[in-house]
C-alpha cells in the first residue's frame, strides 16, 4: 500500500510551549491509525494541522502528494473540501438545517448540493428514517452519524476524526465504531484521535503522543493476531 500521509519533523509552538516536537508519521492508504495520548499531548494539534485548520511552526505534511505547509487559505479550504472528511467530538451541525441539508452543506462548498446523494449518504450511516430531522431532534449518536455522512459525501481520501465517540454513550459508540470498521473495510483511510483505549485499539496502529513527541507506534490488530 502506498503512503497517503507523510508527516516529517512536524513542530508546533505556542510561545515557549512546544505542542508538537519533531513528529514523524506515515499512514498508508486504507490504514486506520489511532492517535492517543493524555490531555495536552498534542494529539488534537496534530489532527488540526493535518486537517488544514492550523499551520505548523516547522516540518512537512504531505497528503496524497500535496504539501500543506505554505498553502494559501484558499488552497487549504479547497484541500479540506476535496481531500479530507472531518468528524468532530461536538458534531458541529448547523442547528437550523435538517439532517439532509447538513450533509448537502458540505456538497455545496465542494460542487453542487444534491439531495439524492445526501439521502444515500444518510441511509449508508443508518439514518434513512431521520432525513428531515433537525439536529435538536436527533440523539447524540444520530448527530455523529450525520456528521460522518457529511464527512463522506465528497468522497474524501482520508477521514479525520477528533474524539468521535467522546460525547456518546456506549450503545452509540458501538454504532459509530461499527461504521468506522465498515468504512475501513471498504478501503477508507482513517486517522482517529482518541483518549479512549477501546476506540484506539480498533485501529490498525496506535500512535502514542506525550508532550508533543511520538512515544511508541504499536499495531494492536497485528499484536492481537
Amino acid at each position: 500500500m502506498k503512503e497517503i500521509m507523510k508527516i516529517s519533523g512536524l513542530s508546533k509552538a505556542y510561545g515557549q510551549v512546544n505542542a508538537l516536537d519533531h513528529v514523524d508519521l506515515a499512514v498508508r492508504e486504507g490504514e486506520w491509525v489511532s492517535i492517543m495520548g493524555p490531555s495536552g499531548s498534542g494529539k488534537s494539534t496534530l489532527l488540526n494541522i493535518v486537517c488544514g485548520l492550523d499551520s505548523p511552526t516547522a516540518g512537512s505534511v504531505l497528503i496524497d502528494g500535496l504539501e500543506l505547509a505554505g498553502l494559501s487559505a484558499s488552497d487549504l479550504a479547497r484541500y479540506r473540501r476535496e481531500m479530507v472528511g472531518l468528524i468532530f467530538q461536538q458534531f458541529h451541525l448547523v442547528p437550523y438545517l435538517n439532517a439532509t441539508e447538513n450533509v448537502m452543506l458540505a456538497q455545496y462548498f465542494h460542487s453542487m448540493a444534491d439531495e439524492e446523494s445526501a439521502r444515500i449518504a444518510l441511509e449508508r450511516v443508518g439514518l434513512g428514517h431521520r432525513l428531515d430531522h433537525l439536529p435538536a431532534h436527533l440523539s447524540g449518536g444520530e448527530q455523529q452519524r450525520v456528521c460522518i455522512a457529511r464527512a463522506l459525501i465528497n468522497e474524501p481520501r482520508v477521514l479525520l476524526a477528533d474524539e468521535p465517540t467522546g460525547n456518546l454513550d456506549e450503545k452509540n459508540e458501538e454504532a459509530v465504531m461499527g461504521l468506522f470498521e465498515e468504512l475501513n473495510r471498504q478501503g477508507m483511510t482513517l486517522v482517529v484521535v482518541t483518549h479512549d483505549a477501546s476506540v484506539g485499539e480498533a485501529g490498525d496502529r496506535i500512535v502514542n503522543l506525550e508532550h508533543g513527541r511520538v512515544l511508541v507506534k504499536t499495531a494492536p490488530k497485528l499484536q492481537t493476531a
Partner: peptide, 16 residues
Amino acid sequence: RGEIGLMKALGAENIH
C-alpha cells in the same frame, strides 16, 4: 461565528 467557522472547516472560502 461558530457557524462560519464550521463552514470554513468544511471547505468554504471567504467568497462563500
